[in-house]
Design a protein around this nucleic acid. Structure first.
Lengths: 191, 191
DNA sequence: CTTAATCCCTACTAAATCAATGTAGATTAG
DNA sequence: CTAATCTACATTGATTTAGTAGGGATTAAG
């Protein structure tokens, strides 16, 4: 049930771009993104292209160029990214909602394996399609703040200082069927 | 988040062996298993070897040989099989319970991605480690019975006729955090 | 004892995927 | 003009996947 390196790098970079956006930094270079997570630059360049072509990030070329999110991080669902990079969430094609393919079992209706894998698919999708980049960024930055470390991408020049940002997220109060770590952390208002 | 063909074949074959066991058939040949699901024989032989070496099935050699489950199907958890064939359930190594490997992120404690993937891992494991081969067999055979089709492996010679088998499964009453299709079907007592 | 059916074992391979790397071009700021 | 940056495309090496091939060992039955 692996996430590819490509997918991991994409998500890590998007999280970094999300932090940058939150902190008022308008552009981040690939080299910065690569250094921040220790990723191979040329490989990451490819990944960023893919994210740009899919409309998740936009770029500015030339000197002082870089990447930024193309939409609000709350509009980018993790499932979208994983599907883009790694394909369907479903363990087998015959339970995929976005890329169904019949399996070779004689009769899908009697296939217990299929039903089990449908449950798995739904469990995965329930998480990855529920949470957004904003959620992951929130958890990451909150953790950083509580442990007293400065957020990266504190804009050196052009930033209007991160205004303390009135709560924008829905509260995740009793809204969740899958109550995992992320849910707990987002619910924890005592920063 | 793919399950490999190898893994799929292993599970399909185990389900067939589970049905065979339930129906009183003591041995099933690889060729039968392959034909039942239309799988490549020689490839399936390899898979069966792997299942045997891991102790999930046992074999009888020679003419009239074949395979059977090495333990009760209720003692075989799906997660065990998937881990055996396809490796850890976790999408990334740093959230694996059975094969942890550090990721290259600077600090795991501040890694929102890691927490999200931990939730995914837990969601997958909650299903695959909860349900057993017996559950999947139960769902499969029940579906077959309700739609009036005969169960395969009706033993031609050596079987003592499937006694109607007093309910052996725990009822899955309010025991489940992940209530998916399988849970619903197992809870449905009106066969 | 011979034969046929079966599992057991090892090796091989073709194709796909993964994870990069390399080279050169286009664009922009200064 | 030059340096910094994204863009595009080609190539590569390693690994994994999904098989195929060929025989060897064991057993039942005649």
């Amino acid at each position: 049930m692996k996430l590819s390196k490509r997918g991991e790098y994409a998500l890590r970079s998007l999280i970094n771009l999300g932090i940058a956006a939150k902190v008022g930094r308008s552009l981040v270079r690939v080299t910065e993104l690569a250094k921040a997570e220790d990723l191979p630059i040329k490989f990451l360049e490819q990944v960023m292209q893919q994210l740009r072509e899919a409309g998740f990030v936009e770029s500015v070329r030339g000197k002082h160029g870089g990447y930024r999110l193309a939409k609000a991080s709350s509009q980018i669902h993790i499932g979208q990214i994983v599907r883009l990079i790694d394909g369907p969430l479903a363990p087998i094609g015959c339970v995929s909602q976005t890329a169904y393919a019949p399996c070779n079992c004689p009769d899908e209706a009697h296939c217990g394996l299929r039903m089990l894998m449908l449950d798995v698919r739904n469990a995965i999708a329930a998480i990855l399609d529920r949470y957004t980049l904003a959620d992951v960024v929130e958890v990451t930055t909150r953790k950083m703040v509580t442990s007293g470390r400065a957020l990266p991408y504190s804009s050196p020049a052009e930033a209007p200082a991160p205004r303390s940002k009135a709560r924008t997220r829905r509260p995740h109060a009793h809204t969740s069927p899958t109550e995992g770590v992320i849910h707990q952390l987002l619910g924890d208002y005592a920063i």
